[in-house]
Nucleic acid binder design. Structure first.
Length: 256
DNA sequence: TTCCATGTTCCGCA
DNA sequence: TTGCGGAACATGGA
């Protein structure tokens, strides 16, 4: 379930359980989860801090060694003392006897080492993180300038903005009252502004109630992802369609 | 058994 | 060059 808010939760979880402890061993249960490098250099080191950019988590092991985790579609973290979780793919052993598992049923995730988060972001052309305070409405406007195609496709493009996935793209467009199929060149400046604030609002709120351990409020579209459901905001009909090859839900009445 | 899934990448085509 | 549709990856749940 990992989009930006979920990865933010993982980053906090990682910070609570995995920092400032010497890694005494690493068990790669399924090597298909590895990226370009093996994880050996981490043994004997400890991780001192965690960062997130979009859907990527980075942990600093010092000397230009950073752990990078991407959660794919079903990635998750589990700190445990006894039995590892069913789909554990990599297990980090700590000197206190506890362990951290990266679990990932569908194996779309990646556990890798990189030299620096900034270099990684640059080399892979990742767009700005929408919750970065340096990301402004002006940046968002520039991003849309002279781009074609559907607005939802742009929101999903990690090279444009990093961190938004299928659920939050729908959620932000729903809040901004914009039809996901709308092309970028037909958006007004007021709509661009509304969408910018909707993106940040939705992501921030999602982090807040996840941190509280709660669920999405009923006014969120995500609670109504079913063809024919009622829009909690205007009473319109929720429709299902496909945009950018992804299942898309929207309110046929107030999203234009 | 069939369809679907909160992600990413690659390929061919327009 | 940009964008899009489709396929592939791997696996379980409804």
């Amino acid at each position: 379930m990992p989009e930006l808010p979920e990865v933010e939760m993982y980053a906090r979880y990682f910070a609570r359980h995995a920092l400032e402890q010497t890694i005494t061993g690493i068990r790669v249960i399924d090597p298909r989860i590895l990226g370009t490098r093996t994880l050996g250099p981490l043994v004997g080191r400890s991780l001192r801090s965690v960062r997130r950019h979009g859907k990527h988590l980075f942990a600093d092991a010092g000397d230009g060694i950073w752990l990078r985790i991407h959660f794919g579609m079903t990635g998750d973290l589990a700190y445990f003392e006894d039995d590892p979780p069913r789909f554990a793919r990599v297990i980090f052993d700590f000197e206190n006897g506890a362990h951290l598992a990266f679990e990932d049923m569908r194996l779309f995730g990646v556990v890798d080492l990189v030299h620096s988060p900034d270099d990684y972001v640059r080399e892979h052309g990742l767009g700005p993180d929408p919750l970065d305070p340096r990301f402004t409405l002006r940046d968002f406007r520039n991003l849309l300038h002279k781009r074609r195609g559907r607005i939802k496709a742009l929101l999903l493009s990690q090279n444009a903005i990093a961190g938004i996935g299928n659920l939050y793209a729908d959620e932000a467009l729903y809040r901004a009252s914009i039809d996901p199929r709308r092309t970028i060149d037909r958006m007004t400046d007021a709509e661009v502004k509304a969408l910018f604030h909707a993106i940040r609002g939705v992501l921030r709120e999602a982090i807040a109630f996840k941190a509280r351990g709660g669920d999405y409020p009923g006014r969120y579209l995500v609670q109504h992802r079913e063809e024919g459901d009622r829009c909690p905001r205007c009473g319109g009909t929720i429709r299902r369609t496909v945009v950018a090859t992804r299942t898309t839900y929207y309110c046929a009445k107030h999203q234009k």
